[in-house]
Design a protein around this nucleic acid. Structure first.
Lengths: 335, 335
DNA sequence: GCAATTTTTGCCATCGTTGGCAAGGCCTTC
DNA sequence: GAAGGCCTTGCCAACGATGGCAAAAATTGC
């Protein structure tokens, strides 16, 4: 590829002048500028980003680390959201999946440092706590879907409690008073928070919390829909069965659908269902389409990059920012 | 961050010696090497990749362009496959989604050129033909899931015909003789190829091709499952209805499931179903789990990077390589 | 017409690294 | 003890761009 030197020679000016044209400095004669621009076009010249970085110290690069792939559909939205925001800032995004291997993670972070990224985003597939010590101190970091054990890093997490509350309220507003919650058993922010939201919504409507209506699916998550199927079946066989069920996620709602159909009940006439995640491929396609709470991954990805580049990831008072993102209700036809 | 100069000063040697240690040159006294390594550790020094590129011309960077996000689950596997292969070669991957906008595409390619990528991968979400002129000639390119209109670029595409044949054979082997095919209407490699595979399999078993058993869903794909639902319902209401149905993709198989259940038939006892894509979230979770043909996106992503870096993307005889990837059968319980 | 000012341009150092070349030191070997 | 060889090390020039500074050219004011 052509270099600035070749452009200068061909245009009959000095390298410095070409540089001035490139960077839109004032004090370049119109005629000269046009000649240089013509040569740039002719040679299809593009300034070398690495060389430019050498002088300016700006790499225009951002690193995006994810912990694991899993079967996670919304993770893709997260990445694309970040990528799009990076694009808007004319930055390029490195993608690196560590597979949750600490060794890989260390090397990955080092590689990003080698390439002088201006900031890094570390995203986990599930909302969880992580160690903070693994990150270099000289590079801005934003965590997504996770938070540092000592809260020393800025982060973006979904509002699990609000989402759980919204899901439950959606059922309550439709008149349901016996509401089941099929949760997962892990002691983590998502199941814990959504349960808390479920309780808050019930309390707000003056309905006593009934242990028997809350069920926990054990990991591993293989056959998650099937486990939920069994679970919902037993829920429907209670003396006083629920008429509305809040499922921890959309995949589990799929299992609930099967159980309800098996019981010869209709959705939403006999039993209403609310899911969580808004995995379009699932929620919008099953019959009837699933009303669910959206995990706004695209927006979280966008916000992560914007925090890095615009806000500097640090709040005014020196405190690290914790963005808690609202999870909106997506109304379809299962309620 | 520390530079090689600071390391040299602190270790009391010249920069050149530190460089030799970094690059594992011979002819460095053990004692010196150890002293240098100690200082490198102390200062947490890492060589600057941009500066290194300046001398060596090796950027260790690969660009990955995708055309659109869509609701495409397997696209993620493609990206992660490429990322993993890049990692194995100690390269970093730029991810850029163009949203199928030609203007964005041009700028994206330029940005990658600016950053001196050693090669680029261009992946489309659907198997299709693309123009070749948009790509720079001085950078190796590998196409994934698409091919250049003049076949001038190396590419990796799934074996649609083989997949269609395998799907149909799977039903034939189970004794089914009336086999429906719910296809999509587009004139593109995937529907065309899979139909060809369907015909080949029937022909191989000496079964005449029956127009009436092949249906076409029109785009747009919104409510794809629902359209398929109607379509399968009409298929089952024929005088001589099919006992096995091959669906163009897993999402459509979901609609087929609903139609079959609605008709009070059982899967697979009354009607067997084969899908395509192997979207785990769907295929493994619905009831009964779906037998399907896998689109091996992860492998295709890996292969793309390997072609770029290992094979140089050009075949021995100067012809460009076209890798046609076999799509394996994933046996579950719907057949 | 000349000084003062402004515009336009070019020279050179620099960013952090690697590679060519050469020099100095030490060890063989006869 | 001298010559030749290898081991070890350092100096300097590059890579492609930008920025400071100053020189050259053009413009202005009186």
């Amino acid at each position: 590829m052509a270099t600035i030197k070749e452009v200068a020679q061909r245009a009959g000016v000095s390298i410095r002048t070409v540089s001035r044209v490139l960077n839109e400095h004032p004090h370049v004669a119109n005629e000269t500028r046009e000649r240089v621009l013509r040569v740039i076009e002719e040679l299809d010249f593009r300034p070398n980003a690495a060389a430019r970085y050498m002088r300016t110290g700006q790499s225009q690069l951002i690193g995006f680390l994810t912990d694991e792939v899993a079967q996670n559909v919304f993770s893709y939205d997260l990445i694309i959201g970040a990528q799009q925001a990076a694009w808007e800032h004319e930055k390029l995004l490195f993608l690196l999946n560590t597979g949750n291997d600490p060794q890989v993670e260390i090397r990955a972070i080092n590689m990003m440092r080698d390439h002088q990224v201006e900031g890094m985003i570390y995203a986990t597939m599930y909302h969880r706590e992580i160690g903070h010590s693994q990150f270099p101190e000289d590079i801005p970091i934003v965590l997504v879907n996770c938070y540092a054990d000592d809260r020393s890093l800025p982060c973006i997490v979904p509002d699990e409690v609000g989402g759980g509350r919204l899901a439950t309220e959606t059922l309550l507003k439709k008149g349901h008073r016996r509401i089941g919650f099929v949760n997962v058993a892990a002691q983590e922010p998502a199941p814990l928070g959504r349960l808390e939201g479920y309780r808050q919504a019930l309390a707000h409507y003056g309905i006593p919390f009934d242990e028997a209506l809350v069920r926990y699916i054990e990991e591993p998550f293989e056959g998650l829909a099937t486990s939920t199927y069994d679970c919902v079946l037993s829920l429907l066989q209670m003396n006083d069965p629920p008429t509305g069920i809040f499922c921890f996620n959309d995949l589990m709602a799929l299992g609930a659908y099967d159980a309800i159909r098996k019981s010869n009940l209709r959705i939403p006439e006999d039993v209403a269902i609310v899911g969580f995640d808004n995995v379009e491929m699932l929620a919008a396609q099953i019959h009837p389409p699933l009303t669910t709470i959206e995990l706004p991954m695209f927006e979280m990805g966008q916000l992560a990059v914007r925090m890095l580049l615009e806000e500097g990831a640090i709040a005014q008072d020196g405190q690290f920012v914790q963005h808690i993102i609202e999870c909106p209700l997506i109304i379809r036809r299962s309620v």
